[in-house]
Design a protein around this nucleic acid. Sequence first.
DNA 1: GTCCTCCATGTGATTATATAACATTACAAA
DNA 2: TTTGTAATGTTATATAATCACATGGAGGAC
Lengths: 176, 176
Amino acid sequence: MTSGNPTVPESVTPPVGFTQHDHATCVVDGLSAAEARCSGEGLHFTPVRRKVLEILLQEHRALGAYVILDRLRDDGFGSQPPVAYRALDFLVTNGLAHKIERLNAFIACSHPRARHAPAFMICRLCDAVAEAQSSPARGALGAAARATGFLIERTVVEAEGVCPSCAEKPPEGKRA
Amino acid sequence: MTSGNPTVPESVTPPVGFTQHDHATCVVDGLSAAEARCSGEGLHFTPVRRKVLEILLQEHRALGAYVILDRLRDDGFGSQPPVAYRALDFLVTNGLAHKIERLNAFIACSHPRARHAPAFMICRLCDAVAEAQSSPARGALGAAARATGFLIERTVVEAEGVCPSCAEKPPEGKRA
DNA sequence: GTCCTCCATGTGATTATATAACATTACAAA
DNA sequence: TTTGTAATGTTATATAATCACATGGAGGAC
């Protein structure tokens, strides 16, 4: 990873993401998309909900509900678990965020515009999470479902492994 | 109790399913397979571990650790969480059981003999869980991983929906 | 405007899931 | 026997999620 990194300052050089993002743009775009989506569908994109999405968008990894809650408190919102869980429920229900079941944690949706069956790649070394698309009905699972008459309504597809950044680095112990 | 419904043909390949099983056979076979596997690999299939596997094999759905713990206590084993979690960890590590991440619960492996990437179908009405095979590297997720250089080590593939039995029945409320 | 209702938010308490830390026991190898 | 190691047991605690109920604010009916 040598090039194409013009604007990201070195202040924080976390092994974030598999692809370099301009976080500022990430956050702004994510919030805009959410606003558009909510206003289009008559959903209430309230301050808490917006703040939680903003918190999620600032990271390219999954955050636990209590981490989110801490940050909400810092911003003057309520500090009890239901505050975070309710906002997260809204975001997940409306496709603006996803729960990573493997981690019991949450991440902003990378493709908030389209309805999709998300799949995730989770780096066990740096905790970065990347979202991809899955087509569950097409693979072996879909075949098994059809064969047995199971009706798929929702899928959880999560891969755990090592992201390209961490794979490049020699195993010098965890974390750089 | 007196079910004695042994007539379901196992014509088709899958030892998987929402189909009728002879549970007694299920349990016995599962325990034998585990014994064979452990003795073959020098693993200690101790009483607690055996008991936990037996408990799991008795159900074709996922059980939470604390349910298992209750049953362990009833059978004279230790009654504190680590007792159950350690046995479960042994079973999961050695491929004799799986964790259903979506449910934070555990289920006996249906194919304990072969190394495999399991996929699960979870009925949201009756809680039955069936195990199928997945080939994560072949689908969209595998393509995304190759494209980004992500090294997949383990996958979680879980489908939530309605099993064939429940789909047939008119909605008569959730089962007892 | 006032009232009213709905929905969102806030809070305290509780339940559910999982692990840390350490003592004790079982067993096999030296 | 001694010793090392793995397994089990127990206390305590950490982490994740929900329940139950009170408060407050935006919009509509009148």
